[in-house]
Design a protein around this nucleic acid. Structure first.
Lengths: 110, 110
DNA sequence: ATACTATATGTCATTATAGACATATCGTCA
DNA sequence: TGACGATATGTCTATAATGACATATAGTAT
């Protein structure tokens, strides 16, 4: 991506709720990493809900356990493409992905 | 990504409404390309709305005119990452991106 | 403690995507 | 017609992301 140094740092110190504005990120950079982190969290949620190990999922999407771990960790080396493709492979719909990226106003809440 | 041959074909013959199921794509592959195409269309919409040429936008996001053209054409060589980053750079919000990926139920409609 | 299973982390060679540049195509205006 | 501005398309080298593998670190049993 653009500057992998920064990314490396970002993804290290993240905290679940209200994620990444404590570093000197431009608004759109922050939005971008938040978006990725939300997808990452959702991915783990889906995988565990479906009772799959990282290895299982890796086989399912023809990747590797380590890459799945990195996806779920929001590692800067994983692309949106891979995250989205993997979520789709897990059965997520476009709408569910959209909701993950940004919940609609007044969501019914799970 | 996975099979660039296919992708090459996909992105060629696309039609705006109800996009890509006329090729032998798996459901999730289809969802993935639809998602990209929707973002591509939105990108052009935002750029033209803001009265920017592809060259202007390219400078804005430190890319090149040709890459912007490819983004808007849904070229398989452009990543979700680039599309999303560019939309964010144009001022789109996560919610707007989410709505582009999948409109919420019963949208108020523009 | 050891052994086993799941997950995390680091590295590497291969592959995909990047920006850049040339050039073709299109539209419009003189 | 030709010239100009915008967009499209093809190709290049450089860079980033990929799967694979090794290995470290939980966690949970016995």
């Amino acid at each position: 991506m653009r500057e992998s140094k920064r990314k490396r740092l970002e993804a290290k110190g993240w905290r679940v709720g209200g994620t990444a504005e404590f570093l000197n990120l431009s608004p759109e950079e922050a939005a971008y990493v938040e978006l990725k982190i939300n997808l990452a969290l959702k991915l783990r949620e889906w995988r565990t809900r479906r009772q799959l190990t990282q290895g299982d999922l890796a086989r399912l999407v023809k990747s590797s356990q380590s890459r799945v771990a990195k996806m779920e960790a929001g590692d800067p080396s994983v692309s949106l493409d891979l995250l989205v493709r993997t979520l789709l492979a897990l059965g997520a719909s476009s709408r569910e992905i959209a909701r993950t990226i940004a919940p609609p106003r007044r969501a019914t809440a799970a």
